[in-house]
Write a protein that binds this DNA or RNA. Structure first.
Lengths: 254, 254
DNA sequence: CCTTCGCTCCCACTGGGTGGAAGGAGTGAG
DNA sequence: CTCACTCCTTCCACCCAGTGGGAGCGAAGG
């Protein structure tokens, strides 16, 4: 009984992608049944397709039988064109060396920020951002830096939704947020005070190429050292400018 | 006219994987026709499947029309279970901070080493290793460290093949290599002198958990500073031991 | 001009994919 | 002990989605 009622795309390829799509930051390990549920496919279909994916090491199973993304997909992912990250990384490293704080780089993808690189040491404050993870824009430093550089219509549309509120300090009033974003845009950097995670504050500056913010560089410190943030803003903006410069030089070559 | 002569696996899934498999470190950007050639699939098949992959951002196209691994696959790859890298990274960072040299972490996959992490700064010597790339074992420090910890039958079988010779300094004589590996195993670290790349030397130590080398930690310096290598061996081995310890503590928990 | 190369689209044929169902294995409650 | 539940595995008859040869198009280059 092929071609049944369910069709989350209907082609085999889309089924395979639906299976891969079942994995995300919040669900990195899934049982077969989980995958079937999350992808909307029949269990037997998932069973067969997953077996092929496992053969190829696109997926692997833990001893307890759950599946996770395999070595082969990780390897493939490393091939993703990422000139930005390559160019920026040494500078993140430098900023980290000079400050000893968590430093990360993010881009905007849709209405979220996507963290593409991160440098941290053994003594760094544990924070939410991981490379490959996504967070909303308004409670994060990099998010505000990126959002502030967008066109008015984009900002307006972003603010017109109900905004998540991960902590009591998150700013969600559209008016106040819009005001802050204008300020961020004017002075060239954003700050947050426990707006995403209690206990940590951040500063972030956009990486601007040809007038467009292609990424944002952020630095995070624990709340009881907020006062040190102001001393980090200058180096932060200097490094962001260096990355802008280096990246522009790169892209011209293509 | 389905079910033709070609069948690199014959299922749709295997075709999709063949397409993804066409991309590797040496071929990160391909035209449609390249993909068809490398995967052994008909051009029209590739055309259709690639279109679906592109919709999903598993692949993307550069302005010049060539395809490369897309953001979505990179993101998925970041989900790959990689406790080792997570545990080890802060220590690589620490070793880098203390030395300022290229530091990397590799595992064995088949007969090659696969680099899983790397820490480097702006002043580091440019070297071949990249996360996600593979190199043969005998000309690399991490490779020798890993190989030296393998069982005799494995070493013998490795040495019985014709070994690549990337530079004139590469050691390929089975007898000499076997002798060196025994020495490496005995003293707990390996060194190389321009055996993979002219101009750079390295030292490496295995990360041993329960008597098995699960990874190797390597450090690379430019050849005209070979003499500094000896001073790096102690910190290198100390950090490798720390990683072993931390990783063992992690795995026990599971 | 013609050739080459890469991409897009079409279409008749058919075999690979499908999902319901039944069976097995493991676990925990009563 | 049985019963209920969850998760995994295997089977199979039907049939539609996938296939690939080939034609056509546009760009580059000789």
């Amino acid at each position: 009984m092929a071609g049944g009622s369910r069709d989350p795309g209907r082609s085999v390829t889309s089924r395979v992608l639906a299976i891969l799509g079942a994995f995300d930051t919040g669900h990195p390990r899934l049982t077969l049944t989980d995958i079937a549920r999350r992808s909307g496919l029949a269990l037997s279909t998932v069973h067969r397709l997953v077996a092929e994916l496992e053969d190829w090491q696109a997926l692997s199973r833990t001893p307890d039988g759950r599946f996770h993304v395999g070595l082969r997909l990780w390897e493939l992912g490393q091939l993703a064109a990422n000139r930005l990250q390559e160019v920026a990384h040494p500078w993140l490293q430098e900023l980290f060396a000079g400050t000893g704080e968590n430093v990360h780089l993010a881009i905007r993808d849709g209405l979220e920020v996507l963290y593409v690189d991160k440098v941290y040491g053994r003594r760094a404050v544990p924070i939410l951002s991981r490379t490959g993870s996504r967070l909303p824009m308004h409670p994060t430093g990099v998010g505000k830096a990126l959002l502030a550089s967008e066109a008015d219509w984009f900002i307006t549309s972003y603010l017109s939704r109900t905004l998540e509120r991960p902590t009591p300090h998150t700013i969600t009033e559209p008016g106040r947020l819009a005001r802050e974003l204008r300020q961020v845009h004017a002075r060239g950097y954003a700050t947050t005070h426990e707006e995403m995670t209690l206990g940590s504050c951040s500063a972030a500056a956009p990486v601007v190429v040809d007038g467009r913010a292609v990424a944002a560089l952020g630095i995070v410190v624990s709340s009881h050292r907020v006062r040190e943030l102001r001393h980090l803003v200058d180096p932060l903006m200097a490094v962001a400018a260096q990355i802008s410069h280096a990246y522009k030089a790169e892209t011209v070559r293509d």
